[in-house]
Nucleic acid binder design. Sequence first.
DNA 1: GTCTATAGGCTGATAGAC
DNA 2: GTCTATCAGCCTATAGAC
Lengths: 203, 203
Amino acid sequence: MNSSGKAAKSPDAGLAPTEQRLMDAARALFATKGYSAVGIREIAREASLTIGSLYHYASSKEDLFLKLMRRNYESATRSAREAATSGSTPAERLANLVRAHVTLEVSDSNVWRLNRSELEVISTEARAELVALRDEFEQIWRQLIEDGVADGSFTPDDPVLARFSIIQMCNGVALWYRPDGRLSLDEIAAVISRQALALLHVA
Amino acid sequence: MNSSGKAAKSPDAGLAPTEQRLMDAARALFATKGYSAVGIREIAREASLTIGSLYHYASSKEDLFLKLMRRNYESATRSAREAATSGSTPAERLANLVRAHVTLEVSDSNVWRLNRSELEVISTEARAELVALRDEFEQIWRQLIEDGVADGSFTPDDPVLARFSIIQMCNGVALWYRPDGRLSLDEIAAVISRQALALLHVA
DNA sequence: GTCTATAGGCTGATAGAC
DNA sequence: GTCTATCAGCCTATAGAC
């Protein structure tokens, strides 16, 4: 997993073309404007469908959002697991995980931006599922930091806050990243990795 | 500015009681559910007003949001400036700024959570104003990091990304903080400060 | 699997009495 | 300065033809 490695599989891989268009449109719109600000008409229009057809693929707006987030998390968790196990030291694995996370955030998969204030608006059942998916994802970070602490590579002030802060740093990139910016995505990931390792007081 | 210091002045200080109730209600609702998910009826109800009366204080929902954000930023920028100038070394001033920022984020003033996806939904004029207010706020961080780099206290991998990451770390606290949690707000602020200083490679 | 048409309710906003 | 009443438009969702 490096700059020239193969890109992560799209969250929508293997879907029928129409459903794929629908998911793409929904993801892009939800990610930029937020769940509540996006109407199903807008999604349908963007996916070149009518509302009636949209409801053939999802039983409600919330159901559409959930299907989307399940796919997002599935692909995010898969690539994170892969990154977190490729590398011979905890520090290397952490750098890989940072790169994978930043890359995901910057793509329009953008799981995290969606799993924020939206949680307060959707039903409690949907919220519980999304929280569980998020926890499963964060568990990868947690395990890696624990491993690094166990073998003495990492000596964070507080392992839990270190995890939160590092994930936040990665997520933040999506807020300002532009493809034509001062630094390439790889350079950005490299800097964030070094910041994360500094934060963990790596020897 | 420490744990026993006087609290920052409320963003709504000096307002007529009714307007203050309105601002409080709007801030709490917008912060938890997001701009688009909150209706003016809900705000009016929470403020014990009718819709008609609400429109006596603001000419539109967006105007209400803007008035709110101006007050939020005014108080946030004031307390940040105060923190960033109290302390004899850049490291001390940075620790003070971290504490001030975390405290603000955790209170319901919560400027940053609001100034995120909402930007995509409001009018371009309103967006421009909010971006300018945010830049003014971030300028305080920028200047402090520059000062620290200039006198050799800070040696970040990249000063700009260091600023982004530190602000993100502070903002993140609001996502999980609970008053009855494992760590007090002061302890949290202390850990985040140390993380920020580590990230800046403070000697 | 995609469409049109429409139901039923909520939205932001306004008019005008008091 | 607060209220009631109301408008026009948009919302999610459904029914049923093709």
